[in-house]
Write a protein that binds this DNA or RNA. Structure first.
Length: 119
RNA sequence: ACCGCAGGCCUCCUUAUCGCUCCGCCUUGGCGGAGAGGAAAGUCCGGACACCAUAGCGCAGCAUAGCGGGUAACGCCCGUCGCUCCGAUUUAUCAGAGUAGGACCAGUGCAACAGAAAGCAAGUACAGUUCGGCUGUAGUGAAACCAGGUAAACUCUAUGCGGUGCAACGCCAUGUAAACCAACGUUUAGGAUAGCGCGUCCAAGUUGGAGGGUAGGCGGAUUGAGCGAUGCAGUAAUGCAUCGUCUAGAUUAAUGAUAGGGCACGACAGAAUCCGGCUUAUGGCCUGCUUUUUAU
RNA sequence: UGGCCUAUGGUGUAACUGGCAACACAUCUGAUUUUGGUUCAGAAGAGUCUAGGUUCGAUCCCUAGUAGGCCAA
């Protein structure tokens, strides 16, 4: 995944690590998104994306939002001012309105910056 | 042309750059290939597959219901008969649509109001009469001496149905029990199963043996009652034969972004074990048929 | 993924085996009171979640859908 970039990004798959991330990780909020992250070294960068079923009952909308968030993180990585991160992160979209790529960008940039500051 | 009905097809296309999931090749980052639906949905039916004697047998229970056929199977599909509806007129026909349509000569129940009377009977008024009673008419009602009506009332008849579900189930690895297996022992009391009876299984203790559960990973998992073409059989659903073809397989869960062009300016909507149906949501195009109106 | 249940005035509940949809609270009007509350008298407000079917006639029986809720792993 993102193999040409400076850092390799893994998919966050394990149920155990996700549960530990949510109980021990740092919770950052910026409307309409939320980031749960830690700074665990050695494992590289692993990311997950989630949308509440309560907010969007249709699967088509949930898939769309997750694709938009993935795309936006890819754009963030390709930027020249990006500094590599190590750890686990989970992005959650937390609003009832269907977003555009711009609103995702406005929310994600400060979240990533605060995550970098934690390193 | 409009309305209604039936059947079939498609689900924005294309170019460039970057990016995602799986597979193959060389090899450690490149190349090549493939990548959501007709409903993937609701979970309403039917199977495949897997495990379980707490799985068996009988009763009970549940489902289906003209007749004939198709199918792995079905509550599905096809044909056909009857009944009902629709619009029309030729008043008995038609394009169509619907139809849980077996049996009240086995038994039980039910029928508000009205009515003399709604079920082991009793009996109103008038007329006729062969004056024994019978026959006809009236009035109430959805239905009235006639082996009445009602089974989407209980029930009966025929046919079918064991249960649980891929988070089934199998393997790997970690490896501590009060948990497992076999033998001995023993009360026949209690417990176990969607209901009941029979059956079956089960405890504490001793000895010996063996490796389980949970968290995690892998398999199950995509080549199948598959799809397409042609021919034959059949009114049709469908079946058979030959040839061709491989078409998602994820597991916090893959299809996007940017720029350019075109048009009808894109509806409903995203696979999670897999098939056959049904139902619901929904954009566009084509073909055929009935009725009506207009024109020729 | 699989299974189960519910829906009736604004709210909470009834309606027996199919036969005029009932009750309480809330609302409104009037009386009592200096005023308000309490109390008393009266009124309005539904066609039973939606669409079909069976029936002479459905809240009730059957089928399909909609919305909400619950359970197991």
């Amino acid at each position: 995944m993102f193999s040409k970039q400076r850092t390799e990004i893994k998919r966050l798959k394990s149920k155990q690590t996700i549960e530990r991330l949510f109980s021990e990780g740092t919770h950052l909020g910026k409307r309409p998104m939320k980031l749960v992250c830690d700074t665990q070294k050695g494992g590289g960068l692993a990311l997950g994306f989630g949308v509440s079923k309560r907010m969007f009952p249709r699967a088509v909308d949930r898939n769309k939002i997750k694709r938009l968030m993935r795309e936006q993180y890819r754009i963030v990585c390709s930027d020249t001012s990006y500094t590599p991160i190590e750890g686990n992160g989970f992005f959650i979209y937390n609003s009832r309105e269907l977003p555009s790529l711009e609103t995702i960008e406005k929310a994600m940039l400060p979240l990533v910056k605060r995550w970098v500051d934690l390193q």
